[in-house]
């Protein structure tokens, strides 16, 4: 019930990641009219950047922001800057402790959606262009990013249920996912026994935590994706991004569409070719459809 898109520019520099993803997601907005989200990677900052979803109502928002301040205080994380926009509250903090413990505590009391030194996740109800109007997504520059459009079936469309999902506990990792994981509860219980907590019943959150757990054990993104295809049951096409890489995995039945196009300079992946073609209007591009049960990763030059 969604569309996905990802792009990575292989060379360093301030590429128009925001504009690129807006175009691609607008191209497949028919796949998910309710909410849109972006996970984008810019330059590496000294400070840890956190983004929270907070109520838009003035009074409730103030309570939420005060609550976040007291949470951070008890972990000795000093807020260096803050910005409040749309449904989100973004801060930069100085923090040197154990990130897993820190975020676990915060997540129990606040809606934390993005954590990283390079990553920023922006997601909300509305279309790609509507999010751009509010959050200036188009101004974001960097090297790579992934995005998502979603059709929601829950009672109220809530921004925190939108993709991308941050890999709880691990900075600079995000995923977008089209499909469903049918062994969700089995895999979730397995991860919960390893100490992870889940904040939604969304199977995409599970994919993010699953991948992050494996990465934290020192595996490469490539080998993690290979294992994911074996471990995760269901129909899925998902994209994962880390500080330096993006990758995809596709289930053995290839029930969910995905096409990709690679040049010497960039790699673009999307649910439908119409999104890729948005980047090359009027041209015929030699896109390929990945085979079922395959995965691949690409890294930016460092």
């Amino acid at each position: 019930m969604c569309g996905i898109a990802g792009v990575l520019f292989k060379t360093q520099g301030a590429h128009e990641i925001g504009k690129t993803l807006i175009e691609m997601l607008d191209g497949c907005q028919h796949r998910g009219p309710d909410s849109t989200g972006f996970a984008m990677y810019g330059e590496t900052r000294d400070l840890l950047q956190l983004r929270f979803i907070v109520p838009t109502d003035e009074a409730a928002r103030k309570d939420a922001v005060d609550n976040i301040a007291s949470l951070l205080a008890r972990h000795d994380a000093a807020i260096e800057s803050e910005q409040s926009v749309g449904c989100s509250y973004q801060i930069a903090v100085r923090f040197d402790g154990d990130l897993l413990e820190f975020t676990k505590d915060i997540e129990e009391h606040a809606k934390l959606v993005s954590v990283g030194h390079t990553l920023d996740i922006i997601k909300d109800d509305g279309t790609a262009h509507e999010l751009d109007d509010l959050y200036n997504v188009g101004e974001f520059t960097g090297t790579h990013g992934i995005g998502h459009v979603r059709l929601a079936t829950e009672s109220a469309v809530r921004p925190e249920a939108a993709h991308p999902f941050w890999a709880t506990g691990f900075e600079d990792i995000a995923i977008v996912h089209n499909g469903q994981i049918t062994n969700y509860w089995k895999m979730r219980r397995r991860l919960e026994r390893r100490g992870y907590s889940f904040h939604t019943d969304n199977d995409s959150e599970l994919v993010a935590v699953y991948l992050a757990d494996k990465l934290s054990q020192g595996e490469t993104l490539d080998s993690v994706l290979e294992t994911a295809i074996e471990d995760l049951d269901g129909t899925f096409s998902f994209l994962v991004s880390t500080k330096d890489e993006i990758g995809y995995a596709k289930d053995n039945l290839a029930a969910k569409p995905m096409v990709l196009y690679e040049t010497d300079d960039m790699i673009a992946i999307a649910s439908e070719e119409v999104s890729l073609n948005r980047l090359f209007p009027g041209q015929s591009i030699n896109s390929t459809e990945p085979a079922p049960g395959t995965h691949q990763t690409w890294a930016r030059s460092i």
Binding site: M1, H30, G32, N178, A255, K256, S271
Partner: peptide, 8 residues
């Protein structure tokens, strides 16, 4: 194979 394809 999903609500997304059904739209098309």
């Amino acid at each position: 194979l999903g609500a997304d394809d059904l739209v098309i």
